[in-house]
Structures are given as structure tokens and as C-alpha cells.
Design a protein around this nucleic acid. Structure first.
Lengths: 143, 143
DNA sequence: ATTCATGCAAATTATTTGCAGCTTC
DNA sequence: GAAGCTGCAAATAATTTGCATGAAT
């Protein structure tokens, strides 16, 4: 039932509806955190719908270029993917335990307008990630 | 004479002063753009001070962990490094020609305070990259 | 003299690609 | 049936590591 919705989303974008694509969308839509290709690969296996890792990468590519997902390059290591909820979203990362929280609000609207004026760029978007230590890690590491 | 300064900087951090380290600092300090490990590798060769690529990576690592450089993971491909000028700096990337401009100002001070209050994180820093099309690329691609 | 930096080659990690067979339209 | 997914194995790209040698303290 869940996956029906994703099938429609895929069709609307003119993409073929395959079990794997719908499943990837479902996994990311349900996840609180952005996931790596490999984590998605494992979750697919857990859902009895195993796919090859390269297939996972190809699916993530298609869905990202169709704006159904967003690709995050936060760490320099592996890329993370999240369901694109179409609301403007940023991330707060814990430097200790590496957990990632999504942040709802964004203070950059006026700043971008200003910047466009100053630089004569057309501003298309931005990435903002904020780093710190979460309450738990601060407690455990207190000097 | 330039490199003397960097030697001092290295010494102050308790790091050994080697020609290669000073040269990497000098290259990045003089560069308008963040550079990749490979670009630095080539620039070292151009300056008649060739180093092995893995040495370059090791140098970039040390200098980054000592806060003399900043590592940027903007693209998901190769990491870029820039001289840490200790002023708060962000980047404006052209999606067309991939040029990167540094932006001086940052609007996030109050936002971070707010966020710290709401989430109980201690905020240590952030990364902000802004994407758009530069004047030239807009001219060339106008539909 | 000791500690650490470097070069080299080989290993690792994340991701991409070519091609044959199978699904979806 | 044609277009285009998928699996598999092999290729690539960026970065890391082990070890012997050489340079900085």
C-alpha cells in the first residue's frame, strides 16, 4: 500500500516503476536520517528485496536527478541520500557520535537576495550544515 | 622569504618544518580558489619541489587537523583544501563553469545561538555553500 | 640519537561502467 | 517488441597504508 504511492510518484516523473525504486523511496521516506548507498542496500536485503549495490547507485542517481532525493556530501567519505520533502532543510551533525538531525528553518532568504545583487549570480540553492556536540556527547566527554 | 613565515607558523604549532609543508601553505595562501590534492601536487612540481601524491595527502591531513587549512567536501568527488584565513568564509559556486568565489560575510550568528538553545547542542561551526550561475554562464546559456 | 617525514608500491573505499538477460511500457 | 532496468564482474577514482630510507629536532 505504501509502495503504491511511490509508484505514482515515479509514473508522474515519467520513470519506470520498479519494485526496487519504490522500495528505495519508501526506505528513505521512512528514515529519520540520511542514508548511504550501502545502508540502503542492506535495508533492501532486510526487506526481502535484495538488489545489487550498483543497482542501488543507479537508482539513487535517477531519483536524485529527478529531484525525488537529495544527495549530501557532508563528510568527504560516502555520500548520503535523503528523501526530498520539498521543504527547505538543513542538518545538524554531532561531531561526537556522528548523529545527524534535520533542521527545519533556514535563515538565508534575505542573505541570498543580497548576494545575488552583489555578485550578479542567479542563486539556485545552497547547502548548510552545522556542526557541534549533542547533549549526550557533551555529558560523556566533559573535561 | 615567504616561506620563512610559514616555517614559523609550523613551528608555533609544534610541527616539523619541511620544505613541502611550507610550500603547500604558500600555494594555498596564494590561491584564490580552494585546490584539490592533485592540483597541489602539480603546483609543487611546477615550483620545482615535487612531492609524492601520498605525501601531499599526508601534509594536507596534518595541516587540516592543525587548523591551518580547511577541507571542503562540496562535490562528492575530490575534496578541496583552502588556506584557513581565520575569517569566517563561505563559498559561492557556479553550476555552469564550476568557478568558486569566496564570500566574506555570514548571516548565521544569531541563528546558531537560537539553534543551540533549541537543540541543546554546543555549536562548533558550520559549512555553507551557495549555488547558482555566474553572470558569464547566464549570458552564454540564456534560453 | 630519536622522532618523524617522505617515496614507493600496494591496498582500500566509494563509485562507475560494459554487457547479457530480464521487465516494464 | 522496444526501451530501459538489473546483476555481475571488472574498471576507475580518490584516498590510505606499510615499510624502508632520509631529514628535522
Amino acid at each position: 500500500m505504501k509502495d503504491r504511492d511511490f509508484d505514482n510518484d515515479l509514473a508522474q516523473k515519467g520513470l519506470r516503476r520498479t519494485r526496487h525504486r519504490a522500495a528505495v523511496l519508501s526506505i528513505l521516506e521512512q528514515s529519520q536520517q540520511p542514508l548511504s548507498a550501502e545502508e540502503i542496500f542492506m535495508e533492501l536485503k532486510a526487506r526481502e528485496m535484495p538488489a545489487n549495490l550498483s543497482t542501488v547507485y543507479r537508482i539513487l542517481d535517477v531519483l536524485t536527478s529527478n529531484n525525488m532525493l537529495q544527495k549530501l556530501n557532508i563528510t568527504g567519505g560516502k555520500s548520503l541520500y535523503e528523501y526530498n520533502r520539498m521543504v527547505h532543510r538543513h542538518h545538524l551533525l554531532c561531531l561526537g557520535c556522528k548523529k545527524i538531525l534535520a533542521i527545519g528553518s533556514c535563515p538565508l532568504g534575505d542573505f541570498e537576495k543580497d548576494l545575488a545583487k552583489k555578485t550578479d549570480f542567479s542563486i539556485e540553492g545552497h547547502k548548510l550544515d552545522i556542526y557541534g556536540y549533542c547533549p549526550e556527547c557533551r555529558k560523556n566527554d566533559s573535561p
